[in-house]
């Protein structure tokens, strides 16, 4: 037997951003079930998004949290234990495609002072969502850094309101949700069969 039992990976203890993707049945109250797993361990949720998935009746939670890999994995294991959870996965940034959307409300009058803001919007890959007499709403999709950049740029013009959505993410893996659920439906793990001893 070799002497070293297992190598303790110190990167496990480093705090970083994790994106959790959770597939669930559509059940009222399940959000609470999931969030208490975080609160109990004093882990903060940075962003959370719930939507339907490509499979009818199946919801997808996308949760962003900053913690250690060890804690993230333990949380995911606890989430998997919830009866209505079909699957839970933890990803780092290089394993997903992800976006957030931000809305910025600025006074209409800033556009009247020349076209600097218009080029700013164009160059930021943002677009104007609505123009009203007293305000304009700008929309930008991107990573948090990008929407934050635009925020910084619009700030001097007198931002009236700002909001950023939770992250939405899909994994880079080839797995198909539908096939994954089919597998669950046919799994033998619903009951125990032991051949006699």
């Amino acid at each position: 037997m070799e002497d070293k039992l297992y190598s303790e990976d110190h990167t496990d203890k480093e705090e970083k951003e994790f994106t959790l993707s959770v597939l669930t049945e559509d059940k009222a109250g399940l959000l609470n079930n999931i969030t208490i797993i975080f609160t109990r361990r004093k882990i903060n949720i940075s962003s959370l998004n719930v939507s339907n998935s490509e499979v009818a009746g199946v919801s997808r939670f996308t949760i962003v949290t900053v913690t250690t890999r060890e804690k993230a994995e333990k949380v995911v294991k606890q989430i998997r234990k919830l009866v209505e959870v079909l699957g839970a996965f933890v990803y780092e940034l290089d394993q997903i495609y992800y976006q957030e959307i931000a809305l910025y409300k600025v006074p209409t009058k800033v556009f009247l002072n020349g076209n600097s803001i218009e080029s700013l919007i164009r160059n930021s890959g943002a677009r104007i969502l609505v123009i009203e007499q007293d305000h304009i709403v700008i929309e930008k999709t991107g990573h948090k850094g990008e929407t934050h950049d635009l925020y910084k740029k619009l700030e001097p013009f007198g931002l009236l309101e700002f909001v950023r959505s939770g992250r939405v993410a899909i994994s880079r893996s080839k797995r198909k949700t539908e096939a994954y659920i089919k597998e669950l439906e046919n799994s033998e793990s619903n009951r125990l069969s032991i051949k006699d001893f």
């Binding site: 209505e84 659920i181 799994s187």
Partner: peptide
């Protein structure tokens, strides 16, 4: 009840 697709009490 004998099966819930999201619940797998006996790991293979």
């Amino acid at each position: 009840c004998e099966r819930i697709r999201s619940y797998h009490p006996y790991p293979i």
